[in-house]
Amino acid sequence: MVSLSGSWLANGGGIWMLAAFYGATAAYGIHVGDRSSEVVESTRDVGDAAANFAGFKISTVNLSGQNHVSPGEILATAGVKPTSSLPFLDAEAARMRLEEMAWIKRATVQKFYPDRLDIQVVERQGYALWQKDGKINVIARDGTVIAPYSDDPRYVKLPIVVGEGAEAHVVEIVEALDLVPGVRDQVRAAIRVADRRWTLKLRNGIDVRLPETGLDGALASLAVFDRDKSLLSRDITVVDLRLADRVTVRLSDAAYEARQADLKARAKAKKGSNT
Rank of each mutant, 00 (worst) to 15 (best):
S3E: 12
G6W: 06
W8H: 05
W8D: 07
G14A: 00
G14Q: 03
G14I: 01
L18K: 13
L18D: 10
F21Q: 13
F21G: 03
T25G: 10
Y28N: 06
I30A: 03
H31T: 03
E38P: 01
S42I: 02
S42P: 04
S42K: 12
T43D: 02
T43G: 09
V46A: 03
D48I: 01
F53T: 04
S64N: 07
N67R: 09
N67Q: 12
S70F: 10
P71W: 07
G72K: 10
E73W: 04
L75W: 05
A78W: 08
L86S: 08
P87A: 05
P87Y: 08
A91R: 11
A91C: 05
R95C: 04
I104F: 14
R116I: 15
R116Q: 15
L117Y: 13
I119H: 07
I119L: 13
Q120S: 13
R124Q: 07
R124P: 10
R124K: 06
R124M: 13
Q125T: 10
Q125I: 05
A128I: 11
L129F: 11
N137H: 09
I139C: 05
R141P: 07
S150I: 04
S150H: 01
D152K: 09
K157I: 13
K157Y: 12
G165P: 01
H169N: 07
V171F: 08
E172M: 08
E175C: 02
L177K: 10
L179M: 14
R188M: 12
V193A: 01
T199R: 03
L202F: 08
N204H: 09
D207Y: 11
R209E: 14
G214W: 08
L215H: 00
D216E: 04
G217F: 06
A218N: 11
S221I: 03
F225P: 04
L231C: 10
L231P: 09
S233M: 15
L241K: 15
L243T: 15
T248M: 15
V249E: 02
R250V: 10
S252L: 14
Y256H: 14
Y256V: 02
Y256E: 13
A265Y: 04
R266E: 00
R266S: 01
R266M: 00
K270N: 03
G272S: 06
G272E: 04
S273L: 13
